[in-house]
């Protein structure tokens, strides 16, 4: 499978322009930013709250934007045109993910600034945030490939927002309900635990387990994305 940076960037530029004219994407980003601004005005924001906003960005912005732009391409038959062009699967997925990646990073940085989040060590946090972004992009791609329309995408994304965005809330029920044990391994929960450990002064060497778990989610979702794409490429 080939990769052409030129083609991937062409798709990225197109998506950037298309997204700038897309009302529902703009309003989704705005809602999350407003939420962050609201929390920011509440004074001292606990770490849990910072990550509620950040995980909400991943579920509502990252996964949703990616899911919606892929679903729209399917609905309008433009994905088929792209697939029939010389753009390879790598060009298309990379190009389409890059715009979501940029929007996510900008939104996370803006939200962190609005809530006043200043991590004790920026490097492991940045690394974990980038890994998480990749996972949610892959998740959005899978859901977008599963959806037939933007309308369907906006419904299919709801469980994702609930499980991944608010998964940390379920942690208090894990002891009571053993079937919820998986919640502990959700990337959103791992991200929060990593953030706490960073605040306790732990470095990369002590954080590897959380990063490893998030990386496993990235690899698993990436494999599933490739399988789904290959299926969609064929009728």
């Amino acid at each position: 499978m080939t990769f052409s940076m030129k083609r991937a960037l062409a798709i990225f530029q197109k998506d950037l322009k298309d997204l700038s004219k897309n009302m529902y994407i703009g309003s989704t980003v705005l809602i999350v930013i407003l939420l962050a601004a609201l929390y920011g005005r509440m004074g001292e924001v606990p770490l849990e709250m910072h990550y509620l906003v950040i995980n909400f960005v991943f579920a509502m912005v990252t996964a949703f934007i990616q899911c919606a732009i892929i679903a729209e391409e399917k609905e309008k038959n433009t994905l088929r045109s792209l697939m029939l062009s010389p753009a390879s699967m790598n060009d298309i997925i990379f190009g389409k993910s890059l715009v979501t990646f940029v929007v996510t990073i900008l939104t996370v940085v803006l939200c962190a600034w609005l809530t006043g989040y200043q991590p004790a060590d920026i490097l492991p946090i940045a690394f974990a945030l980038i890994l998480s972004t990749l996972f949610y992009i892959a998740l959005g791609t899978i859901l977008g490939l599963l959806s037939k329309s933007v309308m369907e995408a906006s419904v299919i994304i709801l469980p994702v927002v609930f499980i991944f965005g608010f998964g940390s809330f379920l942690m208090s029920y894990v002891e009571e309900y053993s079937f919820l044990a998986f919640v502990e391994y959700l990337p959103s929960v791992q991200l929060i635990e990593l953030a706490y450990e960073v605040e306790e002064g732990l470095g990369f060497g002590d954080l590897w387990f959380h990063l490893f778990i998030i990386a496993l989610w990235v690899i698993g979702s990436a494999i599933l994305t490739i399988i789904m794409y290959k299926k969609r490429e064929m009728d």
Partner: peptide, 21 residues
């Protein structure tokens, strides 16, 4: 058609110029 509805005719064709080099 498989064209991007929110983009102009030029912007649609520009994408394919870039894809086909």
């Amino acid at each position: 058609s498989g064209l991007y509805q929110r983009l102009s005719v030029y912007e649609n064709l520009k994408l394919y110029c870039q894809l086909y080099d």
